[in-house]
Write a protein that binds this DNA or RNA. Structure first.
Length: 502
DNA sequence: TTTTGAGTTGTTCGA
DNA sequence: GTCGAACAACTCAAA
């Protein structure tokens, strides 16, 4: 697979996957420049629509992005052709139907996508059509950066150094898409049958489905949100990011993850605009804030790279010894965690935000993940799956990387005794309890000095706050310090086992 | 080959 | 309240 070689007055299919936009789109631009007619296609792949792999909110967001994409295509005299089925079967049929000479798409690096695309490529090439794929989803591709010994980086800091150097040496440039070439004129192509854009039945029939329908999606919304975030005059924007991003009570993160996940926003455009803002500022704090945000883009590439180079992390520990951790896996404790009923206010607030908004502040993702693994001693994969079933921005690479980091099984595993104290985190990052009270209404009248550990309230205080521990709000389901010791023992046992005979 | 420095996001304890 | 040390030992990356 390479770039298209020559100019041909014929038809190509552009297969939209995680690049649901017309701006700055590598494969789409290439196809439009080289082919007279480009048929834009999206496939609903049953594998990716299964309830085990998807979240209702994420599918609703995907649908919004597709509707916006279709509208934008229509504005340019084209439209989105939608089909349902396995790509390796549907695409060859479509090539035949359209008489296309080529298929183009942007590369996707998950294990499933790599296998799928290899199969599609083989079959389409067997029909005599050209297949070209492009780098578009990441700033630096998996495999591009290696250590001096030629191995992939497995530690973030050296990776990010190499990543920054690579981007400085060859700054990414947004790719102009010739929209005027989108117009479909061939009657055979304008009349192609298409399926309706609709959610699978298990989502549309779920009782909570209605609330996600109003999610804002699509590239206009993504671009507008990016510009608002990068506006240095915005008090909740990037200028204060380094300081404010850790405070979940503020809406001071970019909230762009879902847009990046589906490519409704170009990572190149985002990087370039941030980099430009950084070049222009003379303010050290702002410079540091922009750098901190760009560093998050490096994390995104890092975990995409880890998943691509070490596909076994999907299902097992990056540090394989930790597959032998003896989790307690108590279903009742897991259930309480899912429902935000652990008795630890910050943890419960985070879990309830996830259910209410299909999104959780990153500080809370770490806190609740750490709590599930180190306080409840539940296998990180249970939490990973639960997140994927609820997050609007759920992404295999980032979610898996984050969970393995929290569980100390991943790259850069921090010492396993470094365990978040949920009360401590609460006092540091939600000092006045604003975030807690927003998502845990039964604690609203609890005074701030008890909001982080309400079980310490005297009975009289509980009565006054209308919040009795064990009644309106649960008592802590585990005792942190005791569980911390248990967790450390659990991890230590793996260490000794690793040295001894199995 | 050997050595050296470093490793996202912390906690606890005692002075 | 603030500070520094201990928490263990290992692996990675580069010189």
């Amino acid at each position: 697979m390479g770039a298209f070689a020559s100019d041909q007055p014929t038809t190509a299919i552009h297969w939209f996957r995680r690049d649901l936009r017309l701006h700055d789109n590598a494969a789409l631009a290439a196809a439009l420049e080289r082919y007279a007619q480009v048929v834009p296609v999206f496939l609903f792949d049953p594998h990716l629509l299964k309830s085990a792999n998807a979240a209702p909110a994420r599918l609703a967001f995907l649908l919004r992005c597709l509707e916006a994409l279709d509208e934008n295509l229509r504005r340019s005299g084209s439209r989105l052709v939608v089909r349902v089925g396995r790509p390796a079967e549907v695409l060859p049929r479509l090539v035949q139907e359209t008489g296309a000479a080529a298929l183009s798409f942007n590369r996707d690096y998950t294990p499933y996508a790599l296998a799928r695309d290899a199969q599609v490529t083989t079959r389409v090439q067997a029909q005599g059509a050209a297949v070209a794929s492009y780098q578009d989803e990441v700033l630096v591709e998996p495999g591009e950066l290696t250590t001096k010994s030629g191995a992939p980086y497995t530690v973030f800091t050296p990776y990010s150094r190499a990543w920054r150097n690579a981007l400085a040496a060859q700054p990414p440039v947004p790719i102009g898409v010739p929209l005027e070439r989108l117009r479909l004129t061939d009657a055979r192509l304008t009349n192609l049958p298409t399926e309706p854009l609709a959610l699978p039945a298990w989502v549309s029939q779920a009782k909570e489905a209605a609330q996600w329908v109003h999610l804002a999606g699509g590239e206009e919304v993504g671009l507008a949100r990016l510009h608002r975030f990068l506006d240095l005059a915005n008090p909740l924007g990037i200028a204060g990011y380094a300081r404010q991003r850790n405070l979940p009570a503020l809406d001071a993160t970019s909230r762009l993850s879902a847009f990046f996940k589906f490519g409704a926003l170009s990572i190149r455009t985002a990087y370039m605009l941030a980099e430009e803002a950084r070049r222009q500022t003379r303010n050290d704090m702002i410079y540091a804030s922009i750098s901190a945000w760009i560093n998050e883009l490096a994390w995104r590439d890092f975990y995409i790279q880890i998943l691509a180079q070490f596909p076994y992390v999907r299902g097992g520990a990056f540090k394989r010894d930790y597959d032998r951790l003896e989790w307690e896996n108590d279903r009742q404790l897991f259930q309480a965690w899912c429902e935000g009923q652990t008795g630890y206010p910050l943890v419960d607030a985070g879990m309830r935000q996830l259910r209410q908004e299909a999104w959780m502040h990153n500080r809370l993702r770490m806190t609740v993940a750490m709590f599930l693994t180190k306080d409840l001693l539940v296998d990180w994969r249970w939490g990973e799956r639960y997140f994927m079933q609820h997050l609007v921005d759920g992404d295999l690479a980032a979610n898996n990387g984050g969970w393995q980091w929290s569980a100390s099984t991943g790259t850069d595993a921090q010492p396993y005794f470094r365990i978040f104290n949920p009360v401590n985190q609460s006092e540091r990052f939600d000092p006045d309890g604003t975030y807690i009270r927003r998502y845990v209404p039964e604690l609203r009248r609890v005074p701030t000095r008890f909001i982080h550990a309400p079980w310490e309230m005297p009975l009289e205080e509980q009565r006054r706050a209308g919040c009795h521990i064990g009644k309106e709000y649960p008592a802590p389901i585990v005792e942190h310090h005791a569980r911390r010791e248990q967790a450390i023992a659990l991890y230590r046992r793996v260490g000794t086992l690793a040295d001894g005979p199995l």
